[in-house]
Write a protein that binds this DNA or RNA. Structure first.
Lengths: 235, 235
DNA sequence: GCCGGAGCAATTGCATACACTTTTTGCCTT
DNA sequence: AAGGCAAAAAGTGTATGCAATTGCTCCGGC
């Protein structure tokens, strides 16, 4: 083997490959349906086929690539309907989490949720999308945890992960920040009241709106060819 | 390597290993928390470490084993709470499927569902548990498909798969067959009426009862040694 | 001219060898 | 005697080579 890639940052080789490949898929550098040849990928990243194989397995589990025995892997084709189906599932899952949170959150959890939520109002005023996005993720995670159900948590996080590529730009829509906060507010209020039904519907609506906001950014129908130069830093 | 293992049934080697290992986990031959040494397993099944590693990956994705980087794999420890959490999730997922089915099933799907359900009454009369179990699986699958949501379907099937080991013996309880049929009937009726709310609650109750019925067969706290032969009727 | 099968190229699956990480063991120091 | 450090042993992670499967091409037959 030729040069080491110590320059690149940490984690096991497989992790790096997972990141590298998933990045290339998510950004469209690798296009849906495209064949993923193990040898080529190995050569491209200057590693052996072994970690590539394992990375493809994981990506397959994540739903980003599809694998058929003895026939190699291809970039998963996510149809419009499948995407809608995922958002729909997400809405239902969030609704469950919100309902359970309304019923099961401890006093401490409720306090923190409310406090953080109120604090985030400042981020909206300042209009700092980057930071709000960060907070938003945390907020939802708090909701998932509040359900006190490990399996629901796993399902929800997994689904969110699969959707991540498709909702990058949701906060770029004007006024989305404030609206998001209002929707969060409805959820928080319901949870504080212990009104599980209200919390559920509020959460479901919240996701539905995000879904619509993201619907604009459909992937897959991009001009062929030189799918813009990738930020060359591997992983 | 020495002898071939053509005796064992087909599929790729990895598949065989997945089946072999998962069987041993499910039947308690490999006990929760037990370390799974790659080399030992490879020797035990007379294959190389490579397919063992991939099998462990898949089993990890299935939730049967836990893997930590550089620290090997262990048989997943399923706590009482986690099991409850999974059944709870299952109930919610089935409820979603039932609701969606009530709203979205085509006329043909409804017809088949009802017809098959009515036909299954005969199985109850005859008391053929084996066959009813088979039908039962099919019935639920029909429900999952009827939701017309690929992702919900995936989540549901996955959860059902994870629960499979824990609900083997549910139909061995006396009168369970007839009760199961009654519960199915409530679901079917609601779906035929297009009453999504009723279908949802009926489905949720159905799973909840199964959950309680299975609660007796808790795994994990078994006397050491020869982990008592599991109720041998597979699924 | 089209269909079918044998041979060949390409690619995946499996085996084995090597490298690195973690854990254990035993010795030395305090 | 207890604690800590170091070296070895055990075990996982990665690389590479070989076997097996798939898909394609080319030739012959109908």
């Amino acid at each position: 083997m030729s040069g080491k890639r110590n320059l690149i940052r940490s984690g096991t080789t497989v992790d790096q490959m997972v990141r590298a490949i998933s990045d290339r898929i998510v950004t469209g550098f690798l296009r849906p349906g495209e064949k993923l040849d193990e040898a080529s990928l190995a050569a491209r990243f200057d590693v052996s086929r072994t970690p590539i194989r394992e990375a493809l397995s994981r990506l397959s589990a994540m739903g980003l690539v599809e694998r058929r025995p003895n026939r190699g892997a291809t970039v998963a084709v996510v149809t419009q309907e499948h995407l809608a189906s995922m958002f729909e599932s997400m809405a239902e899952l969030e609704a469950i989490c919100a309902r359970f949170s309304a019923e099961r959150m401890t006093a401490g959890e409720r306090r923190t949720l409310e406090a953080e939520h109120q604090a985030s109002a400042r981020l909206v005023q300042l209009g700092v999308e980057e930071e709000y996005e960060l907070f938003n993720t945390e907020f939802h995670t708090r909701l998932y945890r509040g359900a006190h159900s490990k399996h629901i948590y796993e399902l929800t996080v997994m689904t969110r992960g699969r959707l991540a590529p498709f909702r990058r730009a949701q906060f770029m829509l004007p006024g989305r920040l404030a609206q998001s906060w209002q929707e969060h507010d409805a959820i928080v209020t319901a949870i504080m009241r212990g009104d599980s039904a209200a919390a559920g519907t509020a959460a479901k609506d919240h996701v539905s709106i995000v879904s619509e906001a993201s619907a604009v950014f459909v992937i897959g129908d991009r001009p062929k060819g030189k799918a813009e130069p990738f930020p060359t830093s591997v992983s």
